[in-house]
Simulated scan of single mutants.
Amino acid sequence: MNMSGSILVVDDKKEFLDSMRLILGGRFQIDTAQNGREAIERIKQKRYDVAVVDIVLPDFLGTDLLDRIKQISPLTEVIMITGYPSIPTARYSLKRGAFDYLERPISNETLMERIEEALRRKEERLREDQEMKRLLAENRQLRSRLLAMREQLFQVKRTHSMKIAEALLGLIGIKDEDVKLHLMSVRKFTDPIGELYGFPKEVKLDLEMAAELHDIGKLYISRSILKKSGPLNDEEWKEIREHPVIGAEIVREIWENENAATIVLYHHERIDGRGYPEGLSGEDIPLLARIIAVTDAFHAMTSKRAYRDALPVEMAVRELEINKGTQFDPDVVEAFMGVLNRLGLK
């Protein structure tokens, strides 16, 4: 088989190197080195197809030189040769990436055959390497297109979500402008708290829209109850406690977003299990619902209501602190305190 390639022969015996030039020079491009340091310098300057390396060198163990060659030029095939055969050394060499391990005396035909076989393997590995690079490039391009498509779909979803929220806010505003303003205000807390938690943008969108729609179920609550200046009676409380269930159904049916519907459904649950509509407790309450519970309560306390004046921010913060672990998730309260600091409200 007529093959050509660049060969580096490393041996401390000048006579052997001269013979290799005569035997191999007519078929291959031959360079030689008499020690490990010289070999390393040559490999740094030129990438060889095959290196023929003696196990015993004046300054290096051949196995150490094998490691250095593979570090510098991983595709170079290395044939180890020795006059002192050792099974452990042979195993180590092959394990570390040597192509072959030959014992002296070596016939010219055997050496030529092994070099040609090493060149064939080098070409195969090169083709495999090029194919892998091509596949990786195609994968990067495909991933880039998929990410672009995902971004487009997200923007469509976001636009669609905002239109739905705008329409529903318009309806609740007709019934009760205070509820509308409350929903819009609670939404403003979701972006900084979503950033603090490191939520992906899809989760942040669900949180944002759920915040803006968490009281949308009040569309079906009597206006007289919403505007009542005195305490609610049992029947009125029963009706008001229906608004998370109604709101979740509205979000589920109109927006078709189960995650956001779940947030709306559970935003009045309490950590101690005394909330509504299902009396969930602790981590059984979804995290996003626990977040809305805190932001909702804070804005409600700091807003004027028909039955009371707005509380000062300091007092509202105090109420959140007092009710950590009973009404509110302590970790969420702490995170919300950080948001208030960032917004300059605390």
Rank of each mutant, 00 (worst) to 15 (best):
M1C: 14
D12A: 08
E15W: 12
R21T: 11
G36T: 09
R37A: 15
A39C: 08
E41C: 06
R42M: 15
R42T: 13
V50D: 03
A51V: 02
A51W: 01
D54Y: 00
D54M: 00
I55H: 09
I55K: 05
V56A: 14
L57N: 00
F60M: 12
L66Y: 03
K70A: 13
Q71L: 11
S73N: 13
I79D: 14
Y84F: 15
Y84A: 11
L102P: 04
R104I: 05
R104W: 09
P105M: 06
I115W: 01
E117R: 03
L135S: 08
E138M: 07
R140P: 09
R143D: 10
S144H: 11
L147R: 06
L147P: 06
Q152A: 14
Q155M: 12
H160K: 10
A165S: 12
A165C: 15
L168A: 06
I172A: 01
K175R: 06
D176Q: 02
V179H: 05
K180N: 15
L181Q: 13
L183D: 12
L183W: 07
V186F: 07
R187N: 09
K188R: 14
K188G: 09
T190M: 03
I193H: 07
E195R: 04
L196N: 11
F199H: 01
K201A: 10
E202F: 00
L205Y: 05
D206F: 00
L207C: 04
M209S: 12
H214I: 04
D215V: 03
G217I: 04
G217V: 04
G217N: 04
G217L: 04
L219W: 07
L219D: 08
I221G: 05
S222K: 10
S222N: 13
S224D: 13
L226P: 00
K227I: 10
G230D: 08
E236A: 01
K238G: 15
E239D: 12
H243Y: 05
G247R: 00
I250P: 01
R252M: 08
E253Q: 08
N257A: 02
E258M: 00
A261E: 03
L265P: 07
Y276E: 11
E278H: 08
G279F: 10
L280V: 00
D284Q: 03
D284C: 02
I285A: 08
A289C: 06
A300Y: 13
T302I: 12
E314M: 02
E319Y: 10
Q327T: 13
V332Y: 06
A335T: 09
A335I: 09
G338T: 09
L340R: 05
R342H: 14
R342Y: 10
L345I: 06
K346C: 05
